[in-house]
């Protein structure tokens, strides 16, 4: 079957790939582009492990076709840190031990960053509902919520 040529931007750099029309953006990122940070936990939009930003909007990359990314900008977990400088969300996940196995972590990092970009000072309830699409089976969410709260404080300049 004919592959489509897609020209896009991934983590700030222009990228091109060929993909089959039924391939999801997650398949493309992992199998074609070679960015395996986004994880497949369900392939049905129920776990959030594949979360990426598509033109700034938080989506499950398993629910987007690779061809739909034409002309768009994609941010994956690999693009969240600036060089070797971790994003406050990443730093606070580490400090708060907000990960155990780490498999859901890439999706949670991207989703938490998206939350704090749009709502710099979310309440606990807002954090919990925003992240309801990111399943974590290890942590019970407690330390994740605290890490996001703390990262928000850093981004607002209240703490370091």
């Amino acid at each position: 079957m004919a592959k489509s040529y897609v020209s896009t931007t991934i983590n700030g750099e222009s990228a091109e790939y060929l993909c089959e029309p039924q391939q999801t953006l997650l398949d493309v990122l992992r199998d074609v582009v070679g960015l395996t940070g986004s994880k497949e936990g369900c392939a049905s939009g129920d776990c959030g492990a594949c979360s990426v930003l598509l033109d700034g909007t938080l989506v499950c990359s398993c629910l987007v076709l690779g061809v739909e990314a034409e002309g768009k900008s994609i941010l994956t977990v690999e693009g969240v840190a600036q060089g070797d400088k971790l994003h406050p969300v990443q730093q606070k996940f580490l400090e708060h031990a907000a990960l155990q196995c780490g498999f859901c972590t890439p999706g949670l990092i991207v989703a938490s960053k998206a939350l704090l970009d749009s709502n710099p000072n979310p309440t606990e309830t807002e954090i919990r509902y925003w992240l309801a699409g990111n399943l974590c089976r290890c942590t019970g969410y407690d330390k994740i919520v605290r890490a996001v709260q703390d990262a928000g404080a850093v981004m607002r300049g209240e703490t370091v």
Partner: peptide, 14 residues
């Protein structure tokens, strides 16, 4: 930790 918050950690499917 850093590997796991940056997407670098290699799981079996990777």
């Amino acid at each position: 930790g850093v590997d796991k918050v940056t997407g670098r950690a290699i799981y079996a499917a990777d």
